[in-house]
Design a protein around this nucleic acid. Structure first.
Lengths: 249, 249
DNA sequence: CTCACGCTTTGGTCGTACCATTCTAGGCGA
DNA sequence: TCGCCTAGAATGGTACGACCAAAGCGTGAG
């Protein structure tokens, strides 16, 4: 059990991670207390704490304090992966066109899969939410924060309807990485009205199982998006700022 | 600067992360030594170390010891995202069909973009490598490790030719997450020969700018993949195992 | 029977000391 | 003068010990 390699904390983290991945430590299970592990591994407590911090950051552990506290094994969710990708995207700003290109490709497949795999109830639900978004965007002074949040949820919902976790994951990550960007676009009144109408048209086509029509509306969404961006880019010539501008604490 | 919130280390980690993402700390830059930060933040050294461990795990920092050592800001690379995804996939095993579905969709777009955007030299290079892979897979006792590595590189190369980093990154992440699977498939002699031939056909079509032909071969790849997986899933009992074994050349 | 208090467990933080590694500068020898 | 080599400084890595804060649990008073 005891270790003496270069970085003891990472070694311990690897051992515990292996135990978790191999199922020897099931989700919900609890690791020994730090002081116990300290003596089990024959190391100082700081090392144990650092190992736990590593696994906590990976999303494998959840730490609670107090009696009956300790490190509990957690079930990973897409949030961790999305967060990782989002962080990466923040460090690698890229032209909006590239993001659009990617999302457009993704969206086409998702739409088709959703039509094929999702329950009718889900499709109706999607339509209902889309109509709600459209109504929201038609108001004189819409709450843009709420609207873009709903937009995000619609995208996630649609991705989930594709019944393939990978699409859901990537869409989730993209939403996290570029949320601020989407928000800015809705400030253009013309765009938001057209986009809202287009969302409900898309959702209606999906609900009716009209694949080609859904894809057409889907494509139209990206036409609108590109038009809007081209207009915004025309006056000022700052191509790739915008993602890093948010400076909150 | 000093903090007193619940988890001091996470608070500090957030502050430093914000500084990095906002560009106040450029990649290659160096953070103060632990003992300096200890006094700057008015906290114990353990807290500083844990904060650094968090950012190190996120891939934002690289720590070197000795004189001129310390925490250096790192440029994130896809490796971190891939690692995160791989871990997630380990805890959430999903049907190969879902992965294939996703990759197939991605591959179609990548192929089209690559034909449209890549230089002719790159396309020729791709073809050359594909031919090398095909020759490799035709050997009696091919080195499957090398072959699957080359396969991975081909996929990455093609993704890079699409001139959109997002495709490259996602493809990279997928390759890392499923490397073991790919390797196993090449053990099937029939599959690896057909797949090798198909790779060079695809690359040739791309080099010639024949979009539809390239997409056809691309689709064929996934037909082969699904056949191979289906056979492995349903061993010996299938009535047609016999004639699928014979080679086609 | 209920509620509050205090005890126990356990993570969170601080401080110090010492070790291991790495770079640097200055001295010593050829 | 040039080059190697060693001593020292800077810095992360580890250990130990102490105390604080939160959270659960049990017991005793009302």
């Amino acid at each position: 059990m005891p270790v003496q390699a270069g970085r003891a904390s990472e070694e311990i983290a690897l051992q515990v991670e292996a135990a978790i991945v191999n199922g020897r430590l099931a989700p919900g299970g609890r690791l020994p207390s730090e002081r116990e592990m300290q003596s089990q591994f024959g190391t100082g407590r700081g090392v144990i704490r650092e190992a736990i911090k590593i696994l906590q950051q990976k999303g494998l552990l959840e730490v609670r304090k107090g009696a009956k506290g300790g490190a509990y094994v957690r079930q990973l969710d897409v949030g961790n992966v999305s967060e990782s990708l989002a962080l990466f995207l923040k460090q690698h700003p890229m032209e909006p066109e590239k993001v659009i290109e990617f999302r457009e490709s993704l969206d086409r497949t998702i739409t088709q899969l959703a039509i094929a795999h999702a329950e009718q109830a889900e499709k109706d639900e999607l339509l209902k939410e889309a109509l709600r978004l459209e109504a929201m965007l038609l108001e004189d002074e819409p709450d843009l924060i709420d609207a873009s949040e709903l937009d995000r949820q619609l995208n996630i919902k649609l991705a989930r309807m594709a019944r393939n976790p990978l699409f859901e994951w990537v869409m989730h990550a993209l939403q996290m990485g570029f949320s601020s960007h989407d928000y800015a676009l809705y400030e253009d009144r013309t765009y938001r009205i057209k986009a809202g109408a287009n969302w409900s048209n898309t959702a209606r086509a999906i609900a009716n199982g009209e694949i080609m029509r859904a894809l057409a509306y889907n494509g139209h969404h990206y036409v609108l998006l590109r038009q809007c961006i081209d207009e915004k880019a025309a006056p000022a010539s700052a191509p790739n700022t915008g993602f890093l501008q948010e400076d909150n604490h």
